[in-house]
């Protein structure tokens, strides 16, 4: 159950990687840091509004407001990053964008560390959601938070699925990912579409960050390796599921989450990265396009 909820977090983050990869074919290394910003923003707004502290009563409305705030701010941030840093490099070699992304990731981490932004101390996320255990099946506790995380992820992913596969915007996105030039000839506004991919990716990342903060309640400082590893694991999930493929990212995320949990529980807890990266190498060696990444037309 824990594996499922962690997995759905990974899936949410992996979606951002996948969407950007689908349109621009590059790894957005700064994506993991957007998750961090999302998590910290939700803490920040709670602290600002006086909802912090462990005695603050759980409230769904507050949680929803926080989530919304984080998503909106991160969406704007995603838009700005794309507009200012990535768009001018659209025609440059992909490697250059990759390096800009690494630079952007460093920038976000270190700006986050400034005392006037988030500081270098760990912070405790207030318990916005009740810590109830719903039921216990064969020694496995199913908590409300886990259920909410999974539900929230499924809702967001279903929304995204609808957007991509059933709307004109989604059609434009799929067209852009299939062939940018042709799509623009066909009247698709490429710039807007790519911006949109970034904004949606960043919003999903913010949601993941918020859910992460609520689940673990202990926020590591912005430059802590946790955030980078979180992003990397999610990226591995995207690759395993078949990068560029939305449903693949969901499956990959859940798979990696479960694998990690079972690996740490039944084999050894100190080799978490080894499991994740070994499965990546195995998948890449035997099916380099990932589980669902066949030569399908509707890549996004």
């Amino acid at each position: 159950m824990d594996g499922l909820s962690v997995g759905s977090l990974y899936a949410l983050i992996a979606l951002g990687y996948t969407m950007v990869y689908g349109v621009l074919q590059f790894i957005n290394f700064a994506h993991g840091d957007i998750v961090m910003i999302g998590a910290w923003l939700s803490f920040w707004i709670c602290a600002r509004l006086g909802w912090a502290g462990n005695d603050a009563p759980p409230s769904l409305a507050r949680a929803a407001a926080t989530l919304l705030f984080a998503m909106v701010v991160c969406g704007t941030l995603g838009f700005l990053i794309e507009r200012l840093a990535y768009r001018p490099l659209r025609s440059a070699p992909r490697l250059n964008i990759l390096i800009t992304a690494i630079g952007m990731s460093l920038l976000l981490e270190n700006v986050g560390q400034l005392p006037i932004v988030f500081g270098t101390e760990n912070q405790g996320m207030p318990g916005l959601l009740p810590k109830e255990t719903l039921l216990s099946v064969a020694g496995v506790n199913i908590t409300l938070i886990d259920v909410l995380i999974i539900g929230c992820s499924i809702a967001l992913m279903a929304g995204l699925n609808h957007l991509v596969y059933s709307t004109r915007l989604g059609l434009a996105m799929r067209a852009a990912s299939f062939d940018t030039k042709t799509a623009s000839l066909m009247g698709v506004n490429i710039n807007r579409t790519i911006s949109l991919a970034f904004v949606i990716g960043a919003m999903l990342a913010a949601a993941a960050g918020f859910l992460y903060a609520v689940k673990y309640t202990n926020l590591n400082q912005p430059a802590f390796p946790t955030w980078i590893l979180l992003g990397l694991t999610a990226f591995v999930a995207a690759v395993v599921g078949g990068i560029g493929n939305i449903r693949g990212a969901m499956i990959g995320g859940v798979l990696i989450g479960l694998l990690e949990k079972f690996g740490t529980a039944y084999v050894s807890s100190s080799f978490k990265e080894v499991y994740v990266f070994s499965i990546l190498i195995l998948v890449l060696l035997f099916k380099p396009t990932g589980i669902l990444g066949s030569a399908r037309v509707e890549k996004v």
Binding site: A85, P88, A92, T100, G103, L106, N110, V111, Q113
Partner: peptide
């Protein structure tokens, strides 16, 4: 204190101005 930020900014600036 701002070293890493400068570092990151110059990296991005480099990529934008002289990729």
């Amino acid at each position: 204190r701002y070293r890493m930020i400068l570092y990151a900014l110059s990296l991005i600036a480099f990529m934008l101005l002289r990729p």
